[in-house]
Each structure stands twice: as C-alpha cells, then as structure tokens.
Design a protein around this nucleic acid. Structure first.
Lengths: 336, 336
DNA sequence: CTGCAAACTGAAAACGTTTACAGTTGTTCA
DNA sequence: TGAACAACTGTAAACGTTTTCAGTTTGCAG
C-alpha cells in the first residue's frame, strides 16, 4: 500500500503538497503528483484521514429491519445518493428497540459524519439521544417529537389516509374497520387519526369494536383480522395502516373464505410486490421509498457540507406526496 | 469525547495499561480502570485503532442490489452474526457490475477487515480482483471459478432443480418449459443444467423453443413468458430460475388469462412474500437467506480470527439445503 | 532474607494523514 | 531595481491508539 510519503517522494514534493492537491488546492506541478498517484495506485488511508480530520465520509443508516423491503429500498435510495458523493453507508437494524439504537450509534459516532435513522420511538429520550450525538441527523418516515431539531423526511400520511377514506366513502361504504400500527409512531398515529377524521367529516363513525391497534407487523395484522372476523365482520370495508399488517390481514381473510372485494373492500397503506397479482389486486396508498432515501441523503449531505460554515441552515421537514393506486380490492358494498 | 489519556489519568495508570486491559490482558488494578472508563463514558476511537492496528471491526458487504428482498434478508443474516461479535457492516450495491464492485472495494479496503460478496461475474478478473484485496473473502450464492481460493456459501441448487423436475414429472408432465437466469452465474447455470438433466434422466427433453435464458430480473421473466405465450404455449408446466423472474412471468401469464395450475403448472426457485396468497399459491424451491448470511458471517469471522495464527484454515465450501414447498401451482397436466 | 522467574508496567515510537506556521518563489508596480 | 504582495511550499505537530522494549513489581523457593 503506497502512502502519501511515497507519492510525495515520487513526485519530488512534500507530503503537505500532496495532501493539499488532494484537497483540491492549486499546486505548482500538479501533473507530477497526479502521475505519481496513479503510478503508485495511491489511495488516502481512511483511518488516518478520519483520525486527523474527523471527517469519515461515512453515514450511519439505522432502520428497524433491513430485511423489510420498504426499508431496504429506502437504504438503496440513500446509498445511491451518497455513493455519488464519495460517501459510504454503515447499515444497522434496530428491531424497533431504542436500546439497540443507542448501542449501535454509541459505537458508531467516532466513525461516521452523520446519521439517517428511522427511529423506533417518538420519545423524548430518542430526541435527547440523537441531539447528544452532536452530528447531523435526518429522521425518516417517523419523527421523535412535535418539532424536532433535525431534518425530517416523510410522506403525506394524512393525505394518504384521507384519500383512502374518501375512496371507500365514494364507493358507498359506511361501516368501516381499521387496523392501525403503533400510535406512538408518526405514521401510525397520523394515518389512524386522519382516516377517522375523514370519515367523521362525512358523518361516518367507526364502531369501537372495529378498531384494532397494534404493532406494524404481519403477525399483528393477522391476529387483528382474525379478531374482526370473530367479531362478526360487521363492516363492509377495511383500511390497514401498512403493508406488513396488510399481508397478515389478507392471510386471515383468505383463510376465512372472505372474498375481496365482494364481501369486503380492502385498502392499505404502502404498495408491495405482487399486490397486483393477488386474486383481487390490492388498492393501495403508495409512497416513494427511493425518493425518500434520496431526499434524506441530500439533506444530510447538505448539512455535512454546511458544517464549517458560519451558521447552520434551518431544519427542514420534507413531505413527499403519496399516491392512490386503484386496483380491484375495493367495490361498492353488497346490498343488504 | 474522553480519550485513553483521560482514562489513564483518572485511573492513575499509563495509557498502555488501559489499552492492554481493553485488549483483554490482566492488569493490576482492573477496577480502577473500569471505573474510570464508565465514569468518563470512554469509547476507543475506531479510526485511531484502525490506523494503528489495521483492524477495523468492519466488514464490507457487496450485493447486486440491497433493495432486492433476498439480498436484504441475506444482509440481515450477516448483520445479526457480525454485530454480536462487535463488528459493523458497510453495505454497497453493485448493480451486477464488475466495475462497480472494483470501484467500491478499492475505496473500502483501507477500512474493512473482510469482504462478503455476491459477485456479479464468475470471471477470472473477479477472481483476481478479490484475491488482490489480500483480505478474507466469502463468496455468497455464486462462485467466481471452479474452485476459488475463498470461502463459499451457497445452496444446493442442483438438488433444488432436481426436486422441481421430479415434482413436475411425478405429476405427469412431459412437455415442460424453463426460464433461466444468466448462465455465467453459478445458480443460473446449475439450476438450468440440473433441471434439464433431471428431465433427461426420465427421458424427457425440452423443446429448444421452450427454453428462455436471460437476466435474473422481473422484466426478463415477463418478456420470456410473453414469448412463450406467443410461441403457442406448447407445454404444460414451467420452471422459473428465481423469484424475480417468476414474478414477471406470473404477471404475463396472468394478463394472458392463462390459469394456474389448470392450464399451466408453475414452479420456481426462491420463495417470496405472498407466494401463498396468490390465486394459485406458488409451489417453490426455497432457500434459507438468513442462514446463508449467518454461515457467511461465521466463516468470515473465523477467518479474521485465524489471521494471526500460524497457518490458515482450508477454504470451505458450505452448501445449505433447499426445500420444496408444495402449494397449489402444480397439478397434473390437463388431458388432451 | 535473597534471588529469580513470572507478571505486570510505562515511555516512546509508530500508523498516515491534515493543518498551522513560517518560509520561499513569482509577479506586479512604482 | 526593489518593494509589496500573492501564491505556493515544507516542516513539524497533532489526531488516539497499539505495541515494542526495557524496566519494575510480585510471589515463591531456597
């Protein structure tokens, strides 16, 4: 491994000059140094550079579970943007555990320049933990408090939920069920509330027995749907708060022989692979995971760049649009 | 940020002693140092450590595309194992490009201890490039030559393909189509060959017009299926080489109104989310992505550990079992 | 007690950069 | 021609560790 001394020697200059050239400054005999660099195949040592300068050209990406296709796509979006700027990403899964986040970030702070995180909790301790890192942070998909001192990228959950509600209403549904995710999380809470409010605005109320709230997991979706079925299925449409719960719910409804959309209209948040191939292709509110990743990365890179400027830019909250993708899982309710 | 000097001072010892304690050696007054460490919240600086010792406690993970659920799950498996041993992962997508792999790894070699890679090509240049890194490498899912000088983890593709063939044969199929992925890749080539050989062993030959070979992508699966449909659909069953192609093919067949399994039996490699929810839940050969990740990580960690031992362990090729998951997409061929 | 091995310790060098400081060279203008 | 200034350059000190080397302490047998 050639180091900066070798290059300097080969080019007949001092290491300082090489370093400066690498930093983009003008030097007298640039070509000699360039030649030496390519002849020796020199690459600056990241550890030495990081140690001395505190810049690591690395970004920590913390998601609840990298195996979840939505988060994986998000990571891909982040990766695409940061790679282009010479940064790399360290990925870690938190399993929705605050403690895991703390643990991981604690061990990472001396090696990264910034953090992109889908936080597990919207809690004060999360807020505090992130603030104490003292590095640029971008929250994705969820927030940690009403107006956090971080950049924030998410989608228009309220609008999406309203679109879902209006779609069902316009088809004539009046008895509607809802399966929602954790109310402690931004998407869980906003989607739930906005959906219910949109219904209320049309004079429709949900029977408390038809409201299920739990984890954003397939398992919960499945059990929630089972409970609804056991409860007598006293509704004609159901709104599910995300794709994993939706898959679980579909499983339960399918097993119970409940036909979609004849017996039950089905709509959910988040598109998923094959949603279009199901017996009744699922109508969804979809969101742009890749674009979210891009936006998050751009925000972070801008903030890193601004780090040695006099004053920091204000925190930005980016809200990306969602889309109603109408397929065939929603129909007019069956007559009495 | 407290550093080792602060700890040493607080504990009344030299920095060497602190360093040694951290390395697991015995020291006289361990508790004093431990107290100082926790009182100051000291964490060794990764850059300094990496610079001095050359150990980075970091592993590079290169996959074709992190957004692909299979690779995402694989990464999760690696992460789980590696985190438990105090390592972190840097993830990068190659987009199946050798040049991207080279680029990424070149920039990473001064920051990682080992590389886990799903290589884009089974080429000599890939082999060479990886060998030149001079670090432990584990190949996952694909190889780069007949007997590469690396550890290797993959699944029993040949057995899986045979199981698929035998399943179809046992149902009575004799006219069978195949959609295969890149023959330059291990799984592409092995699955293809083993399937055809298994059929041949039963005296069944595939009409060349019913063989489609292309990229491991949804787009190719879709177009391949379209071509087969346009070709008159002169077969009663089809075997598809992986899940993404399978999804594309299902889309085409679905659009063309071809019923599964009545008109066409369908079987593919790789399970996928919701395979069980389709109109005809898909029968698949599934492989354990998480377990592959675990195995790869274990191999790598063992090799890192052995790095300063006298002699290196022999290269291991781990072949994990696959499983035939029978659902409802295969049936006896319709009578003439 | 003494001596000796074993167990531990500290000083200092090294890892490969960036950067402050103090020069040095080159250019421009009186 | 020389002064003033801009543009570039080199030396050397950091950054926070690990590790070698040369001690020092401890424990134990004689």
């Amino acid at each position: 491994m050639a180091n900066i001394h070798d290059v300097a020697q080969a080019a007949g200059v001092s290491i300082a000059t090489v370093s400066r050239m690498l930093a983009g400054e003008n030097i007298r005999n640039r070509t000699a140094v360039e030649n030496a660099i390519s002849a020796l195949g020199y690459r600056p040592n990241a550890s030495a550079r990081g140690l001395r300068s505190g810049r690591h050209h690395t970004i920590a990406v913390i998601v609840p579970d990298i195996a979840n296709p939505y988060f994986a796509t998000l990571v891909r979006g982040i990766e695409e943007r940061v790679i282009a700027r010479g940064y790399r990403i360290i990925v870690a899964s938190s399993d929705e555990q605050f403690t895991a986040e703390t643990e991981v970030l604690g061990g990472l702070m001396d090696a990264v320049d910034a953090v992109a995180i889908v936080p597990a909790e919207a809690s004060e301790r999360t807020n505090l933990m992130l603030a104490e890192l003292g590095k640029p942070v971008v929250l994705i998909d969820r927030t940690v408090s009403d107006s956090p001192d971080f950049d924030l990228v998410h989608v228009d959950n309220a609008k999406g939920a309203r679109m879902a509600a209006e779609h069902l209403l316009s088809l004539g549904h009046r008895k509607i069920a809802i399966i929602s995710g954790r109310q402690e999380s931004l998407p869980g809470q906003v989607r739930h509330t906005a959906f219910i409010e949109a219904l209320a605005a049309a004079g429709v109320e949900i029977d408390p027995g038809n409201i299920k709230i739990g984890e954003f997991t397939r398992a919960f979706g499945q059990s929630a749907a089972s409970e609804l079925i056991d409860g007598g299925l006293d509704f004609t449409a159901v709104f599910v708060g995300n794709n994993t719960m939706a898959q679980g719910a579909l499983l339960s409804f399918h097993e119970a022989g409940i036909t979609i959309p004849e017996r039950l209209s089905f709509i959910c948040f988040d598109d998923f692979d094959l949603a279009e191939l199901l017996p009744a292709p699922v109508t969804v509110i979809s969101r742009p995971a890749i674009a979210e990743g891009h936006a998050a990365a751009d925000l972070l890179l801008a903030r890193i760049q601004a780090l040695d400027a006099a004053e920091q830019p204000a925190f930005r909250h980016l809200i990306l649009p969602v889309q109603l993708t109408v397929r065939q899982s929603c129909a007019a309710p069956a007559g009495p």
